Simulated scan of single mutants.
Amino acid sequence: MLADFAAAHRLAFLVSVPPVAGQVMPMTVQDSLNVITVSEAVRVVDPSSTLAFLDLGWGASTRGRVHIRLSPDTPRSRQFVLLCTGERGHSYRNTTLLKVFNKDKPGERVLGGDYDKKGGAPLLPLTGAQYPQSGKAGTLCLGKCDTATYGARFLIVTRDTENDNGWHNVFGKVESGLEVVREAVNYSDITKVTVVDCGIVLNQ
C-alpha cells in the first residue's frame, strides 16, 4: 500500500496492486487507484504515530522533503495535521519561513507557520496537554508563548542546544530531511524559503 496525502491535491491516492501468481496483468492508473477525500484520509491516520511532511523550496525549485514524526495525540499534533492537510481550508502550503534564531550557534532554530499572515492563529484549543522537553537538533516545538495569537507557529531546531538545555512544548521530531532545513537556514534570505507542499504519509 502506498499513500501520501498532500494539501496541494486535497485528495489521497491509495495505490494497491495485488500480485497474481504466474501472471502479469496490465493495469491502468485508473484501475489501480482508490481515491479518498480529505476527511476520510485524516480519519485513517493513527493519532499515536502520525508522520507529516513539509516540502521546502527556494530559488524557484523544490529542494527536498522533511518528514516529521508527531507526538502521540496532542492538541498541537492534531493542529499540525490539520494545517498540513488543509482539512479546514487553512494550510502551511505556500507559507514562508520567518526567521532564524542563533544562526551558526548552539540552539539554532528556524521559525515557520504563519499560515494566515497575521501571526498564525491557532485552529484548536491548545491548553491542557503536557509536552516533553528536548534540546536536540530535529526537535519540533512551540513557535511562541502567546498561543492565542501565534499558536500555529512552529520551530524546528537545527543544532543541539548547549548542555541539553531543552525547549518546552515539544510535539514532534524530524525523522528525515533535517539537512534540507539546515540548507534552508543557510539560504541568503530565509523569508524566501517556501513550504511548497505539505501533508501526511498514510503508509507509515
Rank of each mutant, 00 (worst) to 15 (best):
M1D: 04
M1F: 12
M1S: 13
D4L: 15
A6E: 05
A6N: 06
A7D: 02
A8V: 10
H9K: 14
R10D: 01
L11Q: 12
L11P: 00
F13E: 02
S16G: 09
V17I: 15
P19D: 01
P19Y: 06
V20L: 10
V20W: 09
V24C: 03
V24I: 14
M27Q: 12
V29A: 12
D31Y: 05
D31M: 13
D31G: 08
N34I: 15
I36S: 00
S39N: 11
E40W: 13
A41I: 15
R43I: 03
V44E: 02
V45M: 11
P47T: 13
S48R: 14
S48T: 12
T50M: 06
L51P: 02
A52V: 15
L54P: 03
L54G: 05
D55G: 01
D55I: 14
D55V: 14
L56T: 09
G59L: 09
S61T: 15
T62S: 10
R63P: 07
R63G: 03
R63C: 07
G64H: 14
R65K: 11
R65Q: 05
V66W: 04
V66E: 01
L70G: 08
S71P: 00
P72A: 09
D73Y: 02
T74G: 06
R76D: 00
S77F: 01
F80L: 06
V81R: 07
V81G: 02
L82E: 04
L82M: 13
L83Y: 05
L83G: 07
C84Q: 03
T85P: 07
T85A: 03
T85L: 08
G86I: 13
H90Y: 08
H90Q: 12
R93P: 00
R93T: 03
T95L: 00
L97A: 06
L97T: 08
L98A: 09
F101M: 10
F101Y: 15
F101L: 11
D104H: 15
D104F: 14
D104G: 10
V110G: 06
G113T: 04
D114P: 09
D114Q: 05
Y115H: 11
K117N: 09
G119M: 04
G119T: 09
A121D: 00
P125Q: 01
P125E: 01
Y131Q: 01
P132I: 07
S134D: 01
K136C: 00
K136P: 00
A137S: 08
A137Y: 05
T139E: 02
L140A: 04
C141I: 04
D146K: 13
D146N: 15
A148W: 06
T149E: 00
G151S: 03
G151Y: 01
R153M: 07
I156Q: 03
I156F: 02
V157D: 00
V157M: 12
T158G: 05
D160W: 13
D160H: 14
D160N: 14
T161V: 11
D164L: 10
N165T: 12
G166Q: 06
G172P: 03
G172L: 02
G172T: 07
K173Q: 11
K173C: 06
G177I: 02
L178Q: 05
V180C: 05
R182W: 04
E183A: 14
Y187V: 08
T191R: 15
K192L: 11
T194M: 09
V195A: 02
D197W: 15
D197Q: 13
C198W: 12
V201T: 14
V201Y: 08
L202P: 11
L202G: 05
Q204H: 13
